[in-house]
Amino acid sequence: MINLKHTKMKNELIKPQGLVKNANRRQFLRMGTMTVAGAGLLLIGCNNDDDMVPAMPGMVSLGTGDIGILNYAYALEQLEAAFYAEVIKGSYFANASAEEKTIMGDLEKHERAHREFFKAALGTNAIGALEVDFSSIDFSSRTSVLGAAKTFEDLGVAAYNGAGQFLESADLLLIAGKIVSVEARHAAAIRDLINPGSADFAGDDIIDSNGLERTLNFTQVLTAASTYVKTEIDFSQLPS
């Protein structure tokens, strides 16, 4: 099962052919590289250093256990923060209404704060900076920016909701819970900007007949995110 969750993003997410090669590469790296002991902040005491796989150049490995989940969140927060950093430099933002300027400015700060928090919490276990690709987004277009923001915020909520069950630490679960509800607040606001005064803020496309919001697994989330991320992300060691 784990092998099937290997790593090639873009259009070759599940690619049994690549498995053998990857296993060899891992072993090689394990022998040839000294792993760095985790020295993250407070929350992360010890972790299985042995299982941490150093990333190839241009590739990041999220790692295992709670650290892997935190890196997963860190990757998504990097993506969101990078997006809003571009938004507030673009001409949509320059010409936006006061309300939309406030919202976009807030979201830029919130996501940057989330990103920096995870980076600090992970310490030496943190993945490197992802290379993003926003070439599909027109930062001068309100429709394009809000559409992308909706994608990112809804994706973030579904990702946190899906990943919570894999966290071992109750403290980390609480922190993830503190963030996910803010992402949901963002998502509702963006959806209301797109279709004001409607029921879309909590639409049937993401909430089922039991009143439960959708959850997405690692593969679904990272596949969706791969449109906007150049860096290859190895999530094969995340818990399942």
Binding site: N161, G164, S181, A188, A202, L212, E213
Partner: peptide, 20 residues
Amino acid sequence: DVVLTAALSIHSVEARHASM
């Protein structure tokens, strides 16, 4: 896991309501 995931999936819906 399932009760937690269900609770999280209600939690974010409440947050959407609150924001709106």
